[in-house]
Structures are given as C-alpha cells and as structure tokens.
Design a protein around this nucleic acid. Structure first.
Length: 141
DNA sequence: GCCAACGTTGGC
DNA sequence: GCCAACGTTGGC
C-alpha cells in the first residue's frame, strides 16, 4: 500500500456470496454489477486498491478488507459489453465487524454513500473514512 | 424528451 | 413483509 492506494466498498448479500466463502475461495472476480454508477467505480479501481466487504440485508456490517488484484475487464458471465468485473483477493477479516448502525452514528461517516445512497453497490471511500472504519474495526493493514 | 409504470435493492 | 429510493422502460 502506498499513498496512491484508493479505498472502496462493495456490497454483497451473504446468502449470495459471503465473506466466509470469499476467504475459502481465496479470491474471486466481482461480477453481477448492473448499475452504471457502480460500474464506473469498478473501472476506476487500480491494482493494489483496498476494498471493504460489506454484508447487506443480513448482517449489515463491514466484515473484511480485500485487495484489487486485476483491474476492470469484460464480465465473463455476460455477452453484454457494457459490464465489467475486477478480481479481488481477501486480505483480512475485521477484528470487530463495523455495523451500519455504527457507521450511521459516526460523524465522520455521515457523508458516505452507504448512508446517503443505500442502493449503490460499489462506492468510493475516502482516506479519512477508511481510517475511521479500520479504527472502529480494531484492525490495521 | 417527458413522465408514468414498473422492477430491484436494501433497510426496517 | 413492507415500502422508500432509485433506475429502467416504453408510450406518447
């Protein structure tokens, strides 16, 4: 990680693809994004960027952090050329998962899309926000 | 090009 | 299970 490293957050329902499965797999390509704003964020990711993994619907907490190992390329699960995937591999689980509730009450996280735009599935996280999340998660990377 | 209808996501 | 927020679709 260097000072060009960006931070992101991706959402996934654990019933569809959980952090535990991700750990077991040791990495995956991140498919299924069918929203232009989320797609645009995927395309902005560069190798080495850090990605928080959020469990939506069930759990509603940030559970771990991953690393971008391959930048955007065409989604292999569709013929539609509009969509892309990235490759991710797990770095570590958060010592203490950071719940949506904690995020909502923390003054430095109010502006994040997780709070403001609940339906967006891939979003940028500022450096400051990422530090706050790591602190809340009692985790360092 | 507008907008109503409809579908999906995700918090509650 | 409900519904708000938002995106997409299709008629005009």
């Amino acid at each position: 990680m260097n000072n060009k490293t960006s931070f992101w957050l991706v959402k996934q329902e654990p019933s569809k693809y959980s952090w535990e499965t991700f750990l077991k797999d040791g990495g995956t390509y991140w498919d299924g994004v069918r929203n232009y704003q989320a797609r645009n964020n995927l395309q902005l990711m560069t190798k080495g960027d850090r990605v928080f993994f959020y469990h939506s619907v069930t759990g509603k907490e940030i559970v771990g952090i991953a690393e971008v190992t391959r930048e955007a390329y065409p989604d292999p699960t569709t013929d539609d050329s509009r969509w892309v995937v990235i490759d991710l591999k797990p770095i570590k689980s958060l010592v203490h998962p950071v719940s949506l509730e904690e995020i909502k009450i923390h003054k430095d996280l109010q502006e994040n899309a997780l709070v403001r735009q609940s339906r967006l599935s891939v979003m940028p996280i500022t450096k400051k926000e990422s530090q706050v999340i790591l602190k809340l998660g009692k985790t360092s990377i």
